[in-house]
Amino acid sequence: MLVLITGGSGSGKSAYAEDYITKLSKDYRKYYIATMQVYDEEGQERVCRHQKMRQGKGFITIEQSTDIHQVADKMEKNTTVENIALLECISNLVANEMFCAGQIRNCALVKKSIIGGIEELLKTIKDFIIVTNNVFEDGITYDETTTNYIRAMGEINQELAKIADKVIEVVVGIPIIVKEGR
């Protein structure tokens, strides 16, 4: 099962996603796929806040800021216990894939890497909860680079929503079902 969870900044989407997977996780091995690259103190604080939120919930953390398909190699392959995972979040992953080592990769390549990687992971992950970000409604016209980033985010969200069993938007901490069932 693939569940896509979206929302704005400070919408409570992370807390909701963590609750969601925790409710599913009884008999499964539960992974948290962290994608954020830390550049400064603020980033560090953000990571700490999220770590605190996850504490005691039994997550195994995998850090994977690019090349998401590589997560498969870091997961245990004991078939008697199935793996489930929470990936947080697509907006970091897209930024990391797009703006890497002073270079800018084009939208199509980024999309291919992320969608391809996730499709690959879905073969072995029983329940995959993916958090993305609603970056589409601030009415600002950005420069070409940022616009390409937003476009990539939009297209990736659409692709993920297509293959998702459930799409949920979190608004002020309240889940709103956008799609249920394929």
Binding site: S9, A15, E42, E137, D138, V172, G173
Partner: peptide, 28 residues
């Protein structure tokens, strides 16, 4: 609702969005 956009470069704008979002979750 002010959180549905690109994370701003300006740190005050970031703080404003984050804190407003979080307090709204609490109010909700």
């Amino acid at each position: 609702e002010i959180g549905n956009g690109i994370v701003p470069i300006d740190s005050f704008e970031r703080e404003y969005r984050e804190r407003t979002g979080r307090i709204m979750v609490k109010l909700a």
